[in-house]
């Protein structure tokens, strides 16, 4: 075992892309500003110099066109990594993703798999305002034919791209904007990550916090506060948003009997709603308290820092919700 390397989430994603480019000549990166500018979040800085214009391609400012081009390349036998700046902009490519990428393999009886990987940044926390800060993961998690993942750790950020490229299905990879600057240890585990399956990030016995993406770290902070009260929270990082790993979630619920779902998406029609319903369907008699959700307030994400913070499912709201669930005074 090698000594863990301390790097940023941004660097981990970049190493993932670089590793894929090195490992497979069919792999190439395309998107707005990924080449000369180095990526709008500086993820691909330096890759153009290393791999050249053939494999690191700047595209015109047309999401529908370049996502469609990526789908075509995948159909043609390549392994494209398409970067869309943010999930907000990906809506311009929804037709390509939902009507084409997700369907062709099924409509062709399995003859035309679409092994495209579409990366996009998601979420708030960097004061990028309402048009660059939303968490629309649930929109994609709704669609059969897609796989949707959201690495929340350094290891997953490094390792998930490789397995995503190996999937015959189109894979949407969400990268939380607020995590790019986060530092953490890159371990050997990065080489063995799987595309599917949730992971118990922190074992506990009092309550299960089900979460994904940037909210994982809000839950970790909350768990530390709760531990001072003797409340031992278990944290499940979903990792894969489609398909969802019901077994891991329910095993945790059976153990703790209480669940708080922490979701940066809006509450209405959210992933949190879906997860909660699955728990009710499969684990009703294991529940010792109502299922609770901590989601983003139902407003377009505000620009001012204090309002943005207030809108997000922060540590304090998680702690209060857990305490209420356990019958403690808040």
């Amino acid at each position: 075992m090698t000594t863990p390397l301390r790097i940023t989430y941004r660097e981990a994603v970049k190493q993932g892309i670089r590793g894929a480019l090195l490992a497979d000549p069919r792999v190439f990166l395309m998107g707005e500003d990924v080449g000369r500018y180095g990526g709008c979040f500086a993820v691909s800085k330096g890759l153009l110099d290393e791999f050249g214009e053939e494999r690191v391609r700047d595209t015109p400012l047309s999401e529908s066109a370049f996502v469609g081009a990526g789908i075509g390349a995948a159909l043609g036998g390549l392994r494209p990594i398409v970067e869309v700046m943010t999930v907000n902009f990906s809506l311009l490519a929804l037709d390509q993703i939902v009507n084409t990428a997700a369907t062709l393999c099924h409509m062709s009886g399995g003859q035309f798999p679409v092994p495209v990987v579409i990366r996009m940044a998601t979420g708030a926390g960097r004061q990028l305002a309402a048009q660059h800060s939303h968490s629309l993961e649930a929109w994609y998690a709704h669609v059969p034919g897609l796989r949707v993942v959201e690495p929340a750790t350094i290891d997953d950020a490094r390792g998930m791209l490789r397995v995503a490229l190996a999937s015959p299905d189109p894979v949407i990879v969400f990268e939380p904007i607020s995590l790019y600057n986060m530092e953490g240890d890159l371990t050997d585990a990065a080489a063995h990550v799987r595309l599917e399956g949730a992971r118990v990030h922190r074992a506990g016995s009092s309550v299960t916090l089900v979460t994904y993406g940037a909210s994982l770290w809000r839950c970790i902070a909350a768990a530390e506060v709760l531990a001072q009260d003797g409340i031992d929270a278990e944290i499940v990082d979903l990792r894969s948003l489609r398909p969802l790993d019901d077994a891991t979630v329910l095993a945790s619920v059976r153990k703790t009997r209480r669940v708080v779902i922490v979701d940066e998406g809006w509450r209405t029609c959210s992933l949190a709603a879906e997860i909660g319903q699955r728990i009710v369907e499969q684990g009703f008699y294991d529940l010792d308290a109502p299922i609770a959700r901590v989601c983003t307030e139902e407003v377009p994400i505000p620009y001012p820092k204090h309002l943005e913070d207030a809108a997000l499912p922060g540590c304090e709201r998680i702690v209060d919700t857990v305490r209420r669930l356990l019958g403690h005074a808040v």
């Binding site: 009997r257 010792d288 308290a289 109502p290 209420r324 669930l325 356990l326 019958g327």
Partner: peptide, 9 residues
């Protein structure tokens, strides 16, 4: 002793 005075396990 649970939320809203609900009976817990």
């Amino acid at each position: 002793t649970g939320p809203e005075g609900a009976i817990t396990v």
